[in-house]
Simulated assay, not measured.
Amino acid sequence: MIETQSTISCPQCGHCETETMPTNACQWFYDCKGCAAVLKPLPGDCCVYCSYGTVKCPPIQQGSGCCA
Rank of each mutant, 00 (worst) to 15 (best):
M1L: 11
M1G: 09
I2Y: 05
T4G: 00
T4H: 01
T4Y: 00
T4W: 00
Q5T: 06
S6W: 03
I8R: 03
S9D: 06
C10R: 11
Q12A: 11
Q12S: 14
Q12H: 15
Q12M: 13
C13S: 13
C13W: 08
G14E: 01
H15Q: 00
H15K: 12
C16T: 12
C16H: 12
C16G: 05
T18V: 02
E19R: 09
E19G: 05
M21D: 02
A25E: 06
A25W: 05
A25C: 10
C26Q: 03
C26D: 00
W28H: 04
W28F: 13
W28L: 11
F29S: 08
D31V: 05
C32T: 01
C32L: 00
K33H: 12
K33M: 13
K33I: 09
G34L: 01
G34M: 13
G34W: 11
C35I: 13
A37N: 15
V38P: 14
L39E: 12
L39Y: 02
L39D: 08
G44M: 07
G44S: 13
D45L: 13
D45K: 15
C47R: 00
C47I: 03
C47Q: 05
C47H: 04
V48R: 07
V48Y: 00
Y49S: 01
Y49Q: 14
Y49A: 10
C50N: 10
C50V: 02
S51V: 08
Y52H: 14
Y52W: 14
G53M: 06
T54N: 06
T54S: 15
T54G: 15
C57Y: 01
I60W: 03
I60S: 04
Q61H: 10
Q62A: 04
Q62K: 07
G63T: 10
S64N: 06
S64G: 07
G65A: 09
C66T: 02
C66W: 00
